[in-house]
């Protein structure tokens, strides 16, 4: 399968700031790709380059087999970058109408996307009267208007309430299963874990890791709450790298060795009050990677 998005060595410099620094990224057809990173990591900048809004300083970028920003590529890409931007004096419906005029999309598609994001009953109200969540949903509706092969969404759940977030994530998941390719950015780890097939982690403009979300789920950790903690940590380090989270210790061992760990700790006179296996959360990996990176730079 040919990649829908192929980026290599992408760099964008703003004066002294390297917003994007040598990013490589590949998005395959039909997948939901999560672009994960903290504030200022360079997510929006990368997505702006992919939609042709800004020119890269250097690097190769191919989107849908063409150059970003080409009419033919834009016509098959739907996007919402940064925040939903519409004409405040027009209704949601009129805003979509004029986008449909630009893009050459049939009118009836407008009702479909409004229905999809659950905005049909407020479609005739002015955009300026919309709540933040409604604006966000209109942005997603606009991104879907062209019935695009590639959907690029920059923090699509920004500003949504819990129910809205759930609906939005379900919608994005459905886009993925419906054969569309989705590239979304987020700084919410759980979100990416829930809806993405693959995740790329970016920090300070650099890709620090790329993972298959299923693989990540497979990694298991043993969570130990024990007293005294220092001694417990020393013993656990014989089994693997130990991380400390709040007042628990975590060590990457297989569940088959949990009983052994327990008996060694108890044998050393350590009181074990909790011991269970857990899936290694993306969050851990994320903090590990992004803080290491920061330590390097600092």
């Amino acid at each position: 399968m040919d990649a829908l998005v192929e980026v290599s060595g992408l760099t964008k410099r703003y004066g002294d700031t390297l917003a994007v620094d040598g990013v490589d990224l590949t998005v395959l057809p039909g997948e939901v790709y999560g672009f994960l990173g903290p504030n200022g990591a360079g997510k929006t900048t990368t997505l702006r380059i992919l939609t042709g809004l800004i020119a890269p300083t250097s690097g190769d970028v191919r989107v849908l087999g063409g150059k970003p920003g080409q009419a033919e590529v834009l016509g098959r890409t739907g996007s919402m970058i940064e925040s939903p931007a519409f004409y405040p004096y027009l209704s949601g419906l009129d805003n979509l109408r004029l986008l449909a005029e630009y893009a050459g999309v049939a009118r009836r598609r407008i009702d479909e996307v409004l229905e999809l994001v659950d905005l049909a009953d407020r479609a005739k109200d002015r955009f300026s009267t919309y709540s933040l969540g409604m604006k966000q949903r209109l942005g997603v509706a606009a991104a879907l208007l062209k019935d695009p092969e590639l959907v690029i969404l920059d923090e699509p759940t920004n500003g949504l309430d819990p129910a809205g977030m759930r609906d939005m994530r379900r919608l994005i998941r459905e886009l993925g299963t419906g054969g569309r390719t989705v590239l979304l950015s987020s700084h919410l780890l759980g979100e990416v874990q829930q809806i993405c097939d693959r995740v790329g982690i970016i920090n300070s403009g650099r890709m620090v890791a790329e993972h298959n979300v299923n693989e990540l789920r497979g990694e298991q950790e043993l969570v130990v709450r024990a007293d005294p903690k220092d001694q417990a940590q020393a013993i656990l380090s014989r089994f693997g790298t130990v991380h400390q989270y709040d007042d628990t210790l975590r060590v990457a061992v297989d569940s088959s060795r949990a009983a052994e760990v327990n008996s060694v700790l108890v044998g050393a006179g350590i009181a074990v009050s909790e011991l269970h296996m857990t899936e290694r959360a993306l969050e851990d990996i994320f903090f590990e990677l992004t803080t290491e990176e920061k330590a390097d730079v600092g």
């Binding site: 939609t51 042709g52 016509g75 890409t77 931007a85 630009y102």
Partner: peptide
């Protein structure tokens, strides 16, 4: 100027037509 202050330029320029056309 409104296209810049509302940020709608990016919305419009990512539809399909080329910048010059718009």
């Amino acid at each position: 100027g409104g296209e810049y202050t509302w940020g709608t330029l990016k919305t419009v320029l990512t539809q399909r037509p080329r910048r010059g056309t718009i």
